[in-house]
Nucleic acid binder design. Structure first.
Length: 567
RNA sequence: CGGGGGGUAGCGCAGCUUGGUAGCGCGCUUGGUUCGGGACCAAGAGGUCACGGGUUCGAAUCCCGUUCCCCCGACCA
């Protein structure tokens, strides 16, 4: 392709309102353009990349027996009501009405529609197993789209669904998907890990996420570099050994101290000149309509996911706090309460005493709190988010907290959807059984952004060969020099038939051409200039800087094809 | 939903405090020079200053409302 005839517009300057590197480069290299918050247009160069990623996904999905189909994005409310998700999904759904006032939504995911097909089409164990997938646009009205293309309101997703007779068979489908995902991400040049995850709105028990390490990521995982433990921070556990970090005197008497500062851990620890670990956070929650104190040490934070396991939970409002504990937020605590409130303490606290917490009186805290002596804990549970440096449960080594981008998620759905929507089959014995399902998602856009995030330098993108929008970029340095021009076009017309080749035939100065080449990141460059042409040669160079060779101009095409085929 | 920042040429920005002809850089067009690392000279085109209302002789600028974009947070005491 001739650059001069293509919509490949690069930007010299950093675009406004971008904060991560992949966002900036994808706009500067002319891959995408923003339309509205969380919605982007793909320009030709970006779409070629997405297409290449989709090609890989399809190949790997087909390899495990997946059958591609295509479902509507416009869906009726009735299906969602059958599973209760019309309400559950709430405002995240783009809901609309048709002209007859029928409730519809733009599908945020497709379990219901897939199950709807399964319940009509699958009647016998002989129909199973099945794996169906599609590559389709999803709509989610996110609370806050962020990080450029990482959290979008409209995005492309490869979602697949497995249908099996029982758990054992499901396991096979699940493992096939894990294998397919491993292959997809490897071929995309991504360095990733899998972690246990929470299944959120999807339901079901087993779920794993595929994660790429990146500072720009909005997910946080906990990893142990020694033994390989890894989990999403929401569900990660720290080992016992980190719980002995704080040792305080058991005999310290319970005393009330005047703390005329804001009630935050930060302020109180500074005022009393004690480490944050001495403080006990006392958080009042309403769980299953009942007030509950959640207690944890001053250095750790609550995991929303872990609270969710206790029941339907929400934080108490300031008014409720005042009524139940008799003080403002920041000065409340589980000691000496007038009303009876359940108390759940993080297991971390089991070994601690001499703690400081709110005295249920504004501007006062208790110190010397001993959990055994001064109050009755109803239950010790795991509540906290693991911090960097906490100890590993398995090996005792220090845990690391790292930012990641979630590029894939695989779920066991069990019979959640088949039971509620009536997708049954008859087994060999003629018994009616719900289909055991799994669902599996990955997003080409996320993959693209993750690749940029992990494959770039200060000058631009460095595409892996299989993903790149073009494999080769021919750069005639001075297009007005007839010899340069002719050589370039001769090589181009030969190479263009064999691999995707772009020729920078613009009448631009060399600086512009080199800078743009670095920015858009085509893996192989053929540089044609008067200097090397004097001896009948041209230069072949890889974008990553690992390869550079001067060859006879007649051999250029052959040499490049050798590299393309080898990789 | 709460808080903060922003919207002026295709892109990045200045001008706003103190109201008085709408500017700069990049990009774009034309002509010329240049060509192994974002070249130079010259001449141009391009604006509903987000939108609506108000104050004023006069508003990009002051006041009110709306809207869109970005960031942080969403009860972490």
């Amino acid at each position: 392709m001739k650059w001069s005839k293509k919509l490949i517009h690069t930007l010299k300057e950093q675009p406004k309102n971008v904060e991560n590197i992949s966002h900036s480069l994808s706009i500067r290299a002319g891959l995408v353009r923003p339309l509205i918050s969380g919605v982007y247009s793909y320009l030709p160069l970006g779409w070629r990349v997405i297409s290449n990623i989709i090609t890989i996904i399809k190949k790997e999905m087909n390899r495990i027996g997946g059958q591609e189909l295509f479902l509507p994005a416009l869906t009726p409310s009735e299906l969602w009501e059958e599973t209760g998700r019309w309400e559950e999904y709430g405002k995240e759904m783009f809901k609309l009405k048709d002209r007859r006032n029928r409730d519809m939504c733009l599908a945020p995911t497709h379990e219901e529609i897939m199950t709807e097909i399964a319940r009509k089409e699958i009647t016998s164990y002989k129909d199973l197993p099945q794996i169906w997938y599609q590559i389709q646009t999803k709509f989610r009205d996110e609370i806050r789209p962020r990080g450029g293309l990482f959290r979008l309101r409209q995005f492309i997703m490869k979602d697949s669904y497995s249908f099996d007779t029982n758990d054992e068979m499901f396991r096979k489908s699940y493992n096939l998907h894990r294998e397919a995902y491993n292959n997809i991400f490897k071929r995309c040049g991504l360095d990733f890990i899998t972690v246990k995850a929470s299944s959120g709105l999807m339901g079901g028990s087993l779920s794993e996420e595929f994660m790429v390490f990146s500072e720009s990521g909005e997910d946080v995982v906990v990893v142990c570099e020694k033994c390989g433990y890894k989990a999403n921070r929401e569900v990660a556990k720290a080992g016992e050994s980190s719980k002995f970090k704080v040792q305080s005197s058991k005999d310290e008497p319970l005393t009330k101290v005047y703390t005329p500062v804001k009630g935050s851990v930060e302020e109180v620890s500074k005022f009393l000149k004690v480490p944050k670990t001495k403080l006990m956070k006392s958080l009042l929650y309403i769980i299953d309509e009942e007030p509950v104190f959640l207690l944890l040490d001053g250095e750790h934070e609550l995991s929303d996911e872990k609270i969710r396991k206790l029941g339907t939970a929400r934080a108490a409002t300031p008014d409720e706090i005042k009524t139940i504990a008799g003080a403002s937020p920041g000065y409340i605590g589980p000691v000496g309460l007038k009303t009876k409130v359940k108390k759940f303490a993080d297991t971390f606290l089991k070994f601690q005493s001499g703690l400081i917490t709110g005295a249920n009186e504004d501007m006062y805290h208790f110190k010397g709190v001993n959990l055994e002596r001064d109050l009755k804990i109803d239950e010790y549970v795991d509540l906290m988010l693991v911090n960097d440096g906490d100890k590993c449960e398995n090996c005792g080594d220090s845990l690391k907290v790292k930012h990641t981008i979630e590029i894939g998620h695989i779920f066991n759905l069990g019979t959640k959807y088949s039971s509620s929507m009536g997708a049954f089959f008859l087994n060999k014995k003629g018994e009616r059984r719900p289909i055991v399902m799994g669902s599996y998602g990955t997003s080409p856009e996320r993959i693209m952004m993750s690749i940029i995030e992990t494959h770039h330098d200060e000058d631009g993108i460095i595409w892996p060969l299989e993903i790149a929008p073009y494999k080769v970029l021919i750069i005639p340095l001075n297009i007005e020099n007839p010899e340069v021009k002719n050589t370039a076009f001769t090589i181009w017309s030969d190479l263009n038939e064999k691999t995707e080749t772009l020729i920078d035939d613009r009448n631009e100065s060399v600086g512009v051409k080199f800078k743009d080449a670095l920015l858009i990141g085509i893996p192989l460059q053929i540089i044609i200039g008067e200097r090397s042409l004097k001896t009948g040669k041209v230069e072949i160079k890889s974008r990553d800087g690992k390869f550079s060779k001067v060859v006879k101009k007649e051999d250029a095409s052959k040499e490049v094809i050798k590299i393309v085929n080898r990789e």
